[in-house]
Simulated scan of single mutants.
Amino acid sequence: MKFRWTWCLPLIASLTLAACGTTGGGGARPTGPSGPAGDAQSLTAYHWQLKQAYTPAGTEDQSWFITSSSGKGLLQLDFVDQRVVVKNLCNVMSAGYSIEGQRINVTRTMSTLMACNDNQLMMLEQKVGRILPTAKQWAVQLGQGQEAPRLTLQFIDGTKWQLDGKPTAQTQHGSAPERIFLEVASQRTSCNHPLIKDFQCLKVREIRYGDNGVKTHTGPWENFYSEIEGYKHEPGVSNVLRINRFKRQNVPADASSYVYVLDMVVSSAIEKRN
């Protein structure tokens, strides 16, 4: 059995960016939430997914929406530790940001360096990397009842994005997470799940690292009866994952006491059979 390692540590490099068009679709949402305006903390409380985009002339712009062959979802922004992180592109892109009232200042984007076989997605990534540092104004309108909050971002050239918010795990669970690392084996395994017949468990082991990044501990392989939010297992590929583990407030019967949320894929290994 041979392995080819593809590293996804947050190596960063400035992007040389060019404007490119893409095709796809996103449904128009003519009305926004009816709740009060949000403050700067509301930026960090939600995952923001792009729902509408407009050209500088005010017409709806579909070029920010594509049907990705890799199964990526809508463009998503997360505001974490004074950085805005862009997900669902080929790479994870990020930039520093600061808020001054309703103004937002975004630094040059940085990115991981994973290869991408989806040309449309790579073109969209380049387009996002070019426009993001030109953001100039933001506004959050909170929802009422079942309404999702809405983030509006406006850019220097007049382009406008409208993004709907989904609560982050920390917002949902009301406490800071514990950071852990799990290695996930390349294949699921049969296991005796108390609620699901013929369940296939992930097989995992805990990894620990010292402050210098050197591995200090590798635990035994164990069946993992839960799922990891944000992680989609691909058979034949093993991964080391950085996980945010949250303590559940109200634990359902026969459920885990923890919620596991993917923070980052640290490394991947593709299993090759002779």
Rank of each mutant, 00 (worst) to 15 (best):
89 L>F: 04
90 C>F: 10
91 N>F: 04
93 M>C: 14
95 A>E: 12
97 Y>H: 06
98 S>H: 06
98 S>M: 11
102 Q>K: 14
102 Q>R: 15
106 V>H: 05
107 T>I: 10
108 R>W: 15
108 R>K: 14
109 T>W: 01
112 T>Y: 01
113 L>C: 13
114 M>D: 11
116 C>F: 01
118 D>Q: 01
120 Q>A: 15
122 M>A: 13
122 M>W: 09
125 E>W: 02
126 Q>Y: 08
127 K>H: 13
127 K>F: 09
128 V>L: 02
134 T>H: 00
134 T>Q: 00
134 T>G: 01
134 T>P: 01
138 W>A: 02
141 Q>N: 04
141 Q>V: 06
143 G>K: 02
143 G>D: 03
144 Q>I: 09
147 E>S: 07
147 E>Q: 15
148 A>F: 09
149 P>L: 11
150 R>P: 01
154 Q>I: 07
157 D>Y: 06
158 G>C: 11
159 T>V: 12
164 D>V: 00
165 G>R: 12
169 A>C: 13
171 T>H: 12
177 P>M: 11
179 R>W: 06
180 I>R: 01
180 I>Y: 03
182 L>Y: 15
182 L>Q: 11
183 E>S: 11
184 V>Y: 04
186 S>G: 09
186 S>N: 11
188 R>Q: 08
189 T>V: 08
190 S>P: 14
190 S>Y: 08
192 N>P: 06
192 N>S: 13
194 P>A: 12
197 K>R: 13
198 D>T: 03
198 D>P: 02
199 F>W: 09
200 Q>Y: 07
200 Q>H: 08
200 Q>W: 02
201 C>Q: 06
202 L>S: 03
203 K>F: 05
203 K>A: 05
205 R>C: 02
206 E>Q: 12
213 G>L: 03
213 G>I: 05
218 T>G: 12
220 P>N: 15
221 W>F: 10
226 S>Q: 13
227 E>V: 15
